[in-house]
Structures are given as C-alpha cells and as structure tokens.
Amino acid sequence: MSTLHIVNKSPFETINLNSCLNHVKEGDSILLIEDAVLGALAQNKLADNISEKLGEISIFALLADLSARGIGRDRLISGIKTTDYAGFVELVANNERTQSWL
C-alpha cells in the first residue's frame, strides 16, 4: 500500500519537501521534479535530513530537471536514484497512489 510522493519546489524556498518527509511511510517513494531536484545535491544544508530517511524510503530525482539545471548525476546525495519520464510513469503505476506536495 505504498505512496509515490511528488515534490516540485526547492526545499530552500518552501517547506513542501520537509512536510513530505514528515508524512512518508516506510516503503514509500519520493520523486523530486522541477525545482525540487535542487534538494538532491550532495552536501547541501538539508542533505542530512534526506539521507536519514533513505533507509526506509526511496528517493528519485527527475533527470530532465537535473540536466536543465546543470546538475550532473555524480553530484547527488548518495542513495538518491535518478529516473527519466518513462521511469516516472512506472513509479506512478507501481505505487497504489500518488500525492503531490503542492
């Protein structure tokens, strides 16, 4: 009964990612799209919050949005996976529901 959480805002701008991290369940996935991919960069000041959760949930960042912002996949917090739009579709299909943190 897992959920795919979709976050699209930078964690340096809004509390959406933080609020999402506070409501996820073990086995859920978070997909970072649009400006939310900024939160995936290694050594950012919120990185510890994110790394802490990686044991119980999976976190993905959308490749198209990373590339658009000049972030290489070698720069990400260790454990965060990347996906393309086809993988995005798959994530939606493989979780029972999606929740967008707008």
Binding site: H23, R97, S100
Partner: peptide
C-alpha cells in the same frame, strides 16, 4: 502528524491544489 500520515496512507485519491 503521525495520525495524519496514517489517514493519507489509506486513501485512493489524494487531491491537492
């Protein structure tokens, strides 16, 4: 907050705007 997370996890459709 914990109860809210439980409520969210038992839905079929979550609408947010």
């Amino acid at each position: 907050r914990k109860e809210m997370a439980d409520i969210m996890a038992e839905q079929d459709i979550i609408l947010s705007f």
